[in-house]
Amino acid sequence: MQLPPYATTGQRIWFYTFRVICGLIFFFLIAPILTIIPLSFNAENFFTFTPGMLAFEADAYSLRHYRDFFTNPQWQSALRNSVQIAPAATLLSVALGTLAAIGLSQSHVPARRAIMAILISPMIVPLIISAAGMYFFYSRIGLQGTYLGVVLAHAALGIPFVIITVTATLVGFDNSLTRASANLGAGPVRTFFKVQMPLILPGVISGGLFAFITSFDEVVVVLFVGSAGQKTLPWQMFIGLREQISPTILAVASILVAISIALLTTVELLRRRSERMRGLSPG
């Protein structure tokens, strides 16, 4: 989109106005996330920029909120819970999800659409409804308020992401490779680990990352299915925002932004690698 040399004044004005509008929208998208990073270094217990911060005085900035996050037992136990729940849920959904995705991409699967609809449903149903149903059902079978209950619930929520990314990777998978492997005498298990797995690994990893972030970020379901013993980081933030708003939340938020930038980069790199391996141009 470039301005042709013969553009009229009106067209020029519109061209630049449009860019300014787009710039403003990008600002709207990104500014809230970026604002909280400097605010998290606030030396005061305020949620806005103090005059000292605007004048760039060194003593208006401090790491006290970060220190609070790393020393406060509540935040630490929340962090510990998150770190215990998310990997377990991810492992479960990746293991089951990858197998099922391989099954689903075979050429003969009876009732494929129905199966697919069931497997994707945790992503479609609003979280509050999943949370309500799980709360009712898990309290019937004694899973409500247990670590296992939260892990199972989060694994169920992460499964659609694994299914979608892994089946997408399998689209480009050349089935003659497994046949060649079988022809050379490898059993199905060996073929899976030596031939199939290395090729679909980028899809599996990015599905796993999606599942991980789903569990790590999730608050509605854990709020209902979990009890005080499973209080995760987002739950602690939720309580903090609702009741005793403290700038430590901003420090936690900044750390999470850094984590999401790292994850975004990983997923993007994986996607490019996967497309390169399948001979598609990156884009």
Partner: peptide, 20 residues
């Protein structure tokens, strides 16, 4: 290959919705 996951989703997710 699909069955383990299908059963898992039916128990951990579809059954709760049916219960609701």
């Amino acid at each position: 290959l699909i069955a383990p996951l299908l059963i898992f989703v039916l128990v951990t997710f579809v059954a709760p919705i049916a219960d609701m």
